[in-house]
Every structure is written in C-alpha cells, then in structure tokens.
Design a binder for these strands. Structure first.
Lengths: 223, 223
DNA sequence: CACGCTCTTGGTCGGATGACCAAGGAAGCG
DNA sequence: CGCTTCCTTGGTCATCCGACCAAGAGCGTG
C-alpha cells in the first residue's frame, strides 16, 4: 500500500464536482460551500488544498487542458495521413468536450474569471494546445492537401469556434454522436457547402494565394 | 419639448456601461455599485428602473438581440441573391459583434447567468434570430446553391459557432476588419479547404443526401 | 504504545452584496 | 401657486461570501 493510495480524499472527484457546478452556474456564481457540499467535504478541507477559489479553477483548467492535448495527440497518432489526422483530432476534441468532461467546457467558457498571473498561466497552456493544432494543419497544407492561399491560423480559429460552440447546443439525447458531428463538420469544412455547378460562378472572396506559413511560435496577438 | 426629451436619465448609457462591465468581468462578478459608479448614477436609481440585477441583464440582452436582427435584416436586404444575402448577413453579424456592441457579446456568452422565466424569454428571442438565419439558408438551398444533403441546421450552428467565437480572439489592432474576416470565413465555408485534386479522393463522410427540410418552427431541443 | 505528521473539523470574521425604502426635490399642470 | 407625479438621494438591512484558524482526529511509523 503506497502512501498515494492511502489518501482518502478524492481530489479528482472534487475537481469534477467543481467543474460541473462551474459549468452550470459559472465560476463567480458558484460558492465554495456549494462545491464542498456537492463533493461531500467541508469547506475548510478545500481551503487546505487550494488557498483561494481561483486556485481551484486553475487546477481544474490545468487538468482539462492536459487531458485535451493527450486525447487529441493519441487520436491523431492513429493515422499518418495529414488530413485524416486532422479529422481524428477533431473527433477527439469534440468527444472530450461533449462526453462528460466539464473541465474542458469551463476552460473554454469561464476563463474571463481568471486574473493576473493565473490567467497568464492558463493562456500559456492553451497556446500549447493551439500550437499543436497549428502543426497538424501545417502538415496538411505542406502535403498539398489544402487549397493554396488558405490562412491556417484562421482555419484553426474558425474550426475551434465551430467545435467549441457545439457544447452550447449539443444534447446527449440528440440523434448525433459527438463523432458524427465532428465528421459532418469536417466534411463541410473540407468540401464546402456550394454545389459543384456553383463553385465556378461564385465570387470567392478568396484572399490572394500565399504560401503556407510555418506555425508561428508567437502567442496570439491581442486577446 | 416632449415629455420624452425631458428625461435626463441616460437609460441607453446605463445599459451600455453595464454591458461593457458584464463583458469584462462577467455578470456575477459585476456589482450594481460598480455599474452605477461607472454610469454616473446612484445604485438606488438603477433599482428604481430595474427591480433586480437580472432585469438589467434581460433588458440589455433584449436590446442586443433586436439590434442584431435589425442589422442582419438590413444587410441581407441589399441583395436578392440567396447566397449573397447569407454573406451580407454574416458580415453584419460580425460587424455588430466586433465593433463595439458589448451587449451582443454578453448575450452570447453570459446567458448562463439567467434563471427561470428570464432565461426562457431570452431563449425565445434568440430562437427568432436563429429562425431568421434558417430562412436565409433555406432559400439558398432551395435555389440549388448548396450541395445536396447539407443539413441546414448544422450549417447554421457551425456558422454561429465560428462567427461568435471570433469575439474571443479578434483584436481591433489586427490586420483584418470584421468584414474581411466574415468574407474569408464565407469563402472557406462555401468552397471548402481541400484543393481541387483532393476533393475526389478524400472520403467525404458526407451523410446521405436528403432533401432540404423547411426551417422548423420548433425550438432547439436540449439547451 | 507513543510520537509526529497530515488532514479534517467546526467555527469565526471582516467585508461586500443585492434589495429595499423613507424622505425630499424638480418639473409640469391646473 | 399649490398639487401631483416622477425620480433621486443617501442610507439601511439581512444575508452571504471567501478566507482563515485553533484544535484535534486519524494513522502509519518507529
């Protein structure tokens, strides 16, 4: 019996509970007493581990982003085809977001609640995740799979937007699984919505072709 | 001088201020005293008009959604071409979201803060906006502009996601205007990302073709 | 068994919050 | 000029929050 196994305190369960409540009501509207009661511990016990409420949020987001990176990396490793890797990564991202991990949702939608250095730290982690995606897209573009002139960073941002927004409308009772949603989105994004006879006649508003730029190591400007 | 003009109280300014603060810190983390001070009134004066903090949020969201509907309707009316109408609507939506109206942002990202009947009311208004978009997409599909088998509701949801997410990363200092972003998104969505020689060989994962269904009057399931 | 360490218990504390209100203008009307 | 209506003022009030802590329980170890 190791020392680790002796810890009766369910730290993961506490974070799960907190994530669920934060998702339901938002960070600011959730009290420590609520979390403690829902998790079956006393408020003081939370304070012993996390000196402030914000630390709880950071720990929860940290865990969520590590999970996301691991899940997408594992999924993408299933194939060596650049475009297929993107599709598999998208599936994994949506599966994690929609199938139970409230932490990912909180990470995406509640990070306004962070302040100062805590925010910086999470942003840094999130940038790592985004850089990982940029790398996959860059490979696909480099392999000639993508239309010339496509802005990879915008593609990633649009894709993240559409995918992350699914969490606001997805229902487990619906008639599509997260994976199906991912595949449909991927097919729309890959092939476009216009029918073949319309593709030629429509003014594309496509920006001038530019060679795909390598994923930039610099963080997003602004934000 | 009408009675209306005599009202010295700047109700619109109050809502603007509240929207700005809600956007910055979230609804729950913003206090009535903060809003009052930033708007240059006393807390009691807010209470006179809005019996509860939530009523302020509802009023603000109500105004935002009316603005959004009006802006998109006006923009789309500039053209009678179904696909062009969609593009113009997208431009208007993004312009409103990115160029100053914090209320739209709050509407999109802070509606978890609403409870009970207040939430129902906003959802009802939001459904109207979505139905308007569904109508435009239905027209485009009916005119044969869209690939057969495209699920219009999913297209709207994906589009909303990508567009609304822009608010989380857009910076006025960036090198693209909201309109340019809208056009790029539209071109990617319309034509797809894959290069022409890849379109045929890629497994599309496209769902079986189905006739475009008319926009359903029923509200979203779930949520 | 007794020591020592980790973690829990049950409570306190200052401060802030949303809601509320009695009293007092200020403007327009008759 | 006095009345009425509308709105502001300046404050109160009960409640609740996050943070904190002294005391002690639990438990493996020596």
């Amino acid at each position: 019996m190791t020392k680790e196994a002796l810890r009766t305190f369910d730290e993961a369960g506490l974070l799960d509970t907190a994530a669920r409540l934060f998702r339901q009501k938002g960070f600011a509207a959730t009290t420590l007493r609520e979390i403690a009661q829902a998790a079956g511990v006393l408020p003081g016990s939370i304070h012993y581990r996390y000196p402030a409420k914000e630390a709880l949020l950071v720990a929860l987001m940290d865990r969520a982003i590590e999970r996301a990176i691991a899940a997408v990396r594992t999924a993408a490793a299933q194939s060596s085809d650049p475009t297929e890797r993107v599709r598999l990564g998208l599936r994994a991202h949506l599966h994690l977001l929609l199938s139970g991990d409230d932490g990912v949702y909180v990470l995406l939608y509640d990070w306004r609640s962070l302040t100062g250095r805590a925010r910086d730290e999470i942003v840094r982690l999130r940038d790592r995740y985004e850089a990982f995606w940029d790398g996959m897209l860059y490979e696909a573009a480099g392999a000639g799979r993508l239309r010339p002139g496509v802005d990879l960073k915008l593609v990633r941002l649009f894709g993240f937007g559409a995918a992350n927004w699914v969490a606001t409308w997805y229902s487990p009772d619906g008639d599509r699984t997260p994976e199906q949603i991912a595949d449909v989105f991927w097919s729309y994004m890959a092939l476009g919505l216009l029918s073949d006879d319309q593709r030629a006649v429509t003014p594309a508003n496509m920006p001038a072709p530019e060679p795909p730029s390598p994923p930039s190591p610099s963080p997003e400007e602004g934000r």
